[in-house]
Every structure is written in structure tokens, then in C-alpha cells.
Amino acid sequence: MASGHASTAPALLVPEAPGLLGLSGLGFNRAQSIAFLVMLGVLLVGPFLLYPVFLMKLLCFALFACAFNLLIGYVGLLSFGHAMFFGMGGYVAAHAAKVWGLTPELAILAGGVVGAGLGVVAGWVAIRRQGIYFAMITLALAQMVYFFCLQAPFTGGEDGIQRVPRGALFGAIDLSSDLTLYWVVAAVFLAGFLFINRIVHSPFGQVLKAIRENEPRATSLGYRTDDYKLVAFTLSATLAGIAGGTKALLFGIATLTDVYWAMSGEVVLMTLVGGLGTVFGPVVGAAVIVTMQNYLAEFGAWVTVIQGVIFVACVLAFRAGVVGELGRILKVRL
């Protein structure tokens, strides 16, 4: 989406405004530091004001959307198949916790490992084409994974894997209380969020942005762009797997819904609504969409229609997303 981000490119050359409270060490500018502190505050106070399970669901999707945004926002690759990592991560984490009896942190990790493995293979195939083809290829690969999950014995087919135990963290801290689990999920989200931020601001991340802006030029400067894209794809898939694994433990269930193409579309929508290529956009987008689904659940199939309308409206009139527009009004990068 090179054209959409052309305006951010020169900013790479301009020194950033100093950060707050040493948060510039995380790569945040001043506005991002403030936004980060606000987000931390919401994370801390949230479970006492809102239903923790709702917040946890939101955080799982926020991490999923951040992982997706790493690709579209910073490498310019639109993956239309991220549900395969999210869903498979969920299945494997659920299987690990239920059948192998692993502790929750290991189960989530297993989800991440599977996401990574799947990411290497899918990425290896998909990065051979760019742009629209890349989107179609990832979508097709995800559909293949969906059919695999439909038939494989361990996924339980249409029933999914049900009654997955939350277990005890490190074998010691019982997670059956929603509030205890909340802190774990919040920690997973925060770790993933900061990790992505670290990647984006590393020299590696700069090369990714260079590829997004002008791939032939990056190649001519001596970078093996395919290798960079594959690593970014794998990292994104890993985090998506972790998000899926966390969600499976949270609800105690892993189903086909999470590997279906509609889920791939949903994460695109979240990121688009929040703002492609912004740090906080995916989080805000996930919050908007999850909240909307919660309140509109009674309308049944109309939710799909509303999501479609939001898609169309965003593409036609609101391409910068909530956070992007906010940044434009305040004249800061968020």
C-alpha cells in the first residue's frame, strides 16, 4: 500500500521529538509515549470496570491485529489468510493443554511454535508473488489449512476441541479465576505489542519499511528482500499463533470459526478501521470491532452486513482509520 504511506516516509529522516519518562527507549515518540501510558492505564483499570472475559477477548484480537499490521503496515504485504495461524495456534494450544496436559504458558507457546512453522512454509510459498496475488495465495493456503482442520482427527471436526482446561500458570498459579487469567492475558498482549514495536524500530524494521516503500531499490542496495519478507511473515504468524492459543485457553474451546476465511477478513477489518501502519491502530480497531460484535450479536447475520458496510466506508472515505485520522488532526504519529 505504498501510496497510502507515502506521507510517513520522510518522517524516517527527521529526528523524533523526545519521548516521555524514558519511553523513547522503546522507540516511541512523545505522542506515542502518552498513548502508551493511556493504554497501560486502561489495561490496569479495565478489569475492575468491565467484564474481564470481554477485555481478554479484546486483547487476544488486538494482539492478532498487531501481528497482522506488522505485515501490511510495515512490509506492505496484505495477507488474507492470517486465520490459519490464529486458528491453528488455537487448536494446538487447546490440544496441548487438554490432551498433553501442558501448563498454560507452554500451551500458548506451542500455539506460537505452530504459527511459526506454518508461517515459514506459507510465507516461503506466498512471497513469490506480490500485491494482489500475495493476498489471493495466502487466502488459498488458509483455505487449505481450513480443510485440513475439518478432516484431521485431533481437531474434532465440526465440534472443535471443547472443555479445554485453563490449568495453572507454571503449575502453581490457578487460572480458573477470570481476574487472575486477565493479568496473564494482559501480560501476553503487552509482551507481543512491545516486541512488535521493538521489531519495527530496529535496523531490521527499517529495512522492512524500505521494502514497503520501494522494493527494487532495497534490492539494489544489496538487501535480500525475500529473506526479510519471510522473516517478517514468520514473526507475524508466530504472534498470530500466540494470540489464537491464548484465545483458545480463555474460552476453553478451539473451533473451525477461527480458521475460516471470515476470520482472516475480520483481522483485516480491525486493522483497517484502526489505521494501517499505525502503532495503536490495530488495538483501537480490535476494540471497535469486538465491542460492535458484542452489542450487535442479537442481530445475527446483519453483523456480516454491517462489517461489510464498514469495510466499504473505510476504503472509500476513511482510509487512514481512527488512529490515523486522529494523528492527522493532532499532527502527530500514533
Binding site: 500500500m1 505504498a2 501510496s3 497510502g4 496484505l78 488474507f80 500485491g131 494482489i132 493476498a135 477478513g265 483485516v268 483497517l272 445475527g300 447475520a301 446483519w302 453483523v303 456480516t304 452486513v305 462489517q307 461489510g308 458496510v309 464498514i310 469495510f311 466499504v312 473505510c314 476504503v315 472509500l316 482510509r319
Partner: peptide
């Protein structure tokens, strides 16, 4: 037409959701 081709894909994906949702209802 003046934007990145990916926006066309996203727009028509949204349209597909709308059309399918309406017919399902």
C-alpha cells in the same frame, strides 16, 4: 483507480460480505 490495487480487493471483499449477509437474512 488512482490508489493501490489492494484497496479494490478490500472494497469488493466488503461488498461480498454485504451481498451475502443480505441474502442470508
Amino acid at each position: 483507480y488512482k490508489l493501490d490495487h489492494l484497496y479494490g480487493l478490500l472494497l469488493t471483499f466488503g461488498l461480498a460480505l454485504i451481498i451475502e449477509g443480505i441474502f442470508r437474512n
